[in-house]
């Protein structure tokens, strides 16, 4: 296998490949080093690992996927139970009723995943101690008023739901061919998407984000002044190319780039998600 030739070919299709790999020179130096140090048979393995790093892909076992999902569900479940326990935070009526519905589902997901992990012969991970301020345990992070300000609460809720959708989506390939486990993960994934859609509608109805839609346009969080706080959660959502097919104006249809980005939600790798949620876990 001619690795350097392959890299040149990739560059034609992805001009940013060297950006992803650090730099062209570093990449070439690394490849040259790999070629010298390793037997030919080991080159594809080293090559694959470089690309996993570059494109944020890691192969996880089923139990790793389930425990990762459980950690995210712990986070969501405790976020909502804490909010519902805070009197006066969520307006009575339809708002509190909707958050109650979502909270119930997240608690059900925790129980379901713990059962599934045990049934698969694994050990469910313990619930971390959370810091919903996003301060890594200091309690003074940027979201410290999430349980005092309804607007900030809904901003965090929307971001958590949209990120949950991306996180499950990113694990689907790791569950390829895994039958019931894949189906269950997909069934949770679409429930999270229903939640995300609803919280976005709540943000719009409350006037906090008057133009936000139930779906994600470009890589815009749709949270106005809170956008900067959650930009990483939406990075990459704006893509309009799917499996090398450009969706904008596809097939001669009038599909705007905004609609093209909305019509496909994008995954996040576990590594990307862990970086995003790290500030919410007490070290």
């Amino acid at each position: 296998m001619n690795v350097l030739h392959l890299l040149t070919e990739i560059e034609k299709h992805d001009p940013e490949v060297y950006g992803r790999l650090d730099s062209r020179r570093t990449a070439m130096r690394q490849f040259a080093g790999i070629g010298k140090k390793l037997a030919a048979a080991a080159v594809p393995v080293a090559f694959g690992s470089m690309f996993r790093k570059a494109y944020g892909q890691t192969t996880l076992t089923v139990l790793e996927v389930l425990n990762y999902a459980l950690t995210l569900e712990y986070l969501e479940a405790e976020f909502y139970t804490t909010a519902l326990a805070k009197s006066g935070l969520i307006p009575a009526g339809a708002s509190v009723s909707a958050i109650q519905t979502i909270s119930t589902h997240e608690t059900q997901h925790v129980a379901f995943l713990r059962t599934a992990i045990t049934a698969a012969g694994g050990m469910p991970v313990a619930k971390p101690t959370f810091d919903f301020s996003g301060g890594s345990g200091s309690g003074t992070g940027p979201f410290k008023d999430a349980f005092n300000s309804y607007q900030l609460f809904l901003a965090v809720a929307q971001t958590l739901e949209d990120t949950g959708v991306r996180a499950y989506k990113g694990q689907a390939p790791n569950l390829l061919g895994k039958g019931d486990v894949l189906t269950a993960a997909l069934n949770i994934h679409s429930v999270e998407a229903r939640h995300a859609s609803h919280v976005r509608q709540m943000n719009r109805a409350a006037g906090f984000a008057p133009t936000v839609k139930p779906w994600i346009t470009g890589d815009d969080p749709g949270l106005g002044t809170n956008n900067a706080l959650v930009a990483a959660n939406y990075a990459g959502e704006g893509t309009v190319s799917q499996a090398t097919i450009n969706i904008t104006n596809i097939g001669g249809q009038m599909i705007s780039s905004g609609a093209a980005s909305e019509s496909f939600d994008e995954p996040l790798s576990r590594d990307q998600v862990l970086v995003i949620i790290k500030p919410f876990i007490k070290a």
Partner: peptide, 18 residues
């Protein structure tokens, strides 16, 4: 294909909720 299906189904779920 599975990833593509996943990218579409969550958008359908957003529609359904709306």
């Amino acid at each position: 294909y599975l990833t593509i299906a996943g990218k579409i189904v969550s958008v359908e779920a957003r529609h359904a909720a709306y």
